[in-house]
Nucleic acid binder design. Structure first.
Lengths: 189, 189
DNA sequence: GCCGTCGTAGACAGAGTTGTCTACCTTGAA
DNA sequence: TTCAAGGTAGACAACTCTGTCTACGACGGC
C-alpha cells in the first residue's frame, strides 16, 4: 500500500452537514450559542451524535462554521439589498430597515457572540473584525467617490453598529433608523 | 403575637452581600454571565452556599443585582468624567477614551448581556433601555441648548454604542474614537 | 439570657453539558 | 464482490450547573 495523500477527503457539503449547519444557525442566532446545547442541535437537525461529531469534532468547530456561514449569508443579503435600493448613500437606511423589521431579528450575530464567547473562543474578535471590515467595504461602495470616502465609510459603519444595537433592545427600530439617517446625512454634507 | 409587618427585614448591605456583588460584577463583566458559574462566585467571594442563597435566591436575582450595580457605578463614572473634561460636547470622546483604554475594558455590560441572556432573563432588554436612556440624558446635558438637542443626543448616543462595540473588537480604540469624534462634530455643525 | 439573624462548612440531588464508544445498515466505486 | 465512507441508534462517561439540606458557631438586641 503506497497511500501518498490522505485517503480521507473531508465531506464539505453532505446533506447531513448542511442540515446541522442550518439548524445550528437558527438556534445559535435565536437563543445564543451558550444557551444552545449540542444535543438540541442534534435532535432538531435529525442526525445522530456519531454523525454530528464526524462533521464537527467539537462544538467550537460548529461555532466557527456557524459564524462563517452567517457571514457569507448576511453579506450576500446586504450587498443585494443595497443594490436593490439604488446603490446610493440613501440605500443604507432602508436596507437596514428591512432587516430590523424582519421576523426573528435579534441583532448582529457577531456582536452577540463577542460578549458570550470571548473566553471560550478567542478568535471571535478577529472573525468579527473581518466581518465588519467587509460590511464597511460594502458601505464604502455606495458612497460617492472622494478623498474622504474611506473615513466616511468607517464612521457610517460605526453608526450602523450602534443602530443595530438600539434596534435590538428598542422594540421599534424607528428611532434607531431616524438617528442613523441623521448621522449619514450630516456626515455626507 | 400580633406581627403586623414581616419580621424579616432583608439585609441590603451586609458585608457578605457586598463581597458577593463585587465579585460577581468582576467575573460577569470579564467572562460573561453564562460562562460564570455560581460556584465560582461563591468561592471567590469567600462565602458559603447557604450565605449566598440567603441573599440571592437564584442566579437571576444576582444577575439583576449585578446589572443594577453596574448601572449606578458606570453612570457615576460617566457623569463625573464628562464634568472633568469640561461638560461640553468635546468632553464625550476623551471621557470614553479613558474607559476604552482602561485595564479590563470589555465593552458595555448591558449590550453583552443582551445577547446572552435574552432567553433566560427577558427583562434585560428593558434594563438596557433604561441604562441607555440615562446615558443619553447625560450626553444631552453637555450639548448646547437648542431645539434639536434631544434628537442630537439620541444620534450621539447611538454612535457612542457603535464606538463601544468597535473598541471591543478592534484592540486599539483609536479608530473608533476618531470616527466618533467625526460624527459628533458633523452632527453639531 | 434567650432567640433570631447572619455566618461557616460541606454533602447531596437532579438536571444538563460535551464528547466517546459499540454495533449495525446502506450505497457506490474499485 | 468487497470494502470503505457515511449514516442510524443509543448507551455511557465525566463533568458542571443550579439549588437544597443539615448541623453548627458567633453576635446583638430585647
Amino acid at each position: 500500500m503506497i497511500a501518498i495523500a490522505s485517503p480521507v477527503p473531508p465531506v464539505r457539503d453532505s446533506a447531513a452537514r448542511q442540515r446541522i449547519l442550518l439548524t445550528a444557525h437558527d438556534l445559535f442566532y435565536r437563543d445564543g450559542v451558550r444557551a444552545t446545547g449540542i444535543d438540541r442541535v442534534i435532535a432538531e437537525s435529525g442526525v445522530t451524535k456519531a454523525t454530528f461529531y464526524r462533521h464537527f469534532p467539537s462544538k467550537n468547530d460548529l461555532v466557527r462554521a456557524f459564524l462563517d456561514y452567517r457571514h457569507r449569508r448576511w453579506m450576500a443579503w446586504f450587498v443585494e439589498a443595497l443594490q436593490r435600493h439604488g446603490s446610493a448613500p440613501t440605500a443604507i437606511v432602508p436596507s437596514l430597515a428591512e432587516w430590523f423589521r424582519g421576523e426573528g431579528f435579534r441583532g448582529c450575530a457577531f456582536i452577540n457572540s463577542l460578549g458570550e464567547l470571548a473566553g471560550s473562543l478567542p478568535e471571535v474578535a478577529d472573525i468579527t473584525r473581518c466581518h465588519k471590515q467587509d460590511m464597511t467595504d460594502a458601505i464604502a461602495a455606495v458612497l460617492p467617490a472622494s478623498r474622504r470616502r474611506r473615513q466616511q465609510a468607517d464612521a457610517v459603519a460605526l453608526a450602523v453598529d450602534g443602530a443595530i444595537i438600539r434596534a435590538q433592545f428598542n422594540q421599534s427600530p424607528d428611532a434607531a433608523l431616524s438617528a442613523l439617517a441623521r448621522i449619514v446625512k450630516s456626515l455626507l454634507a
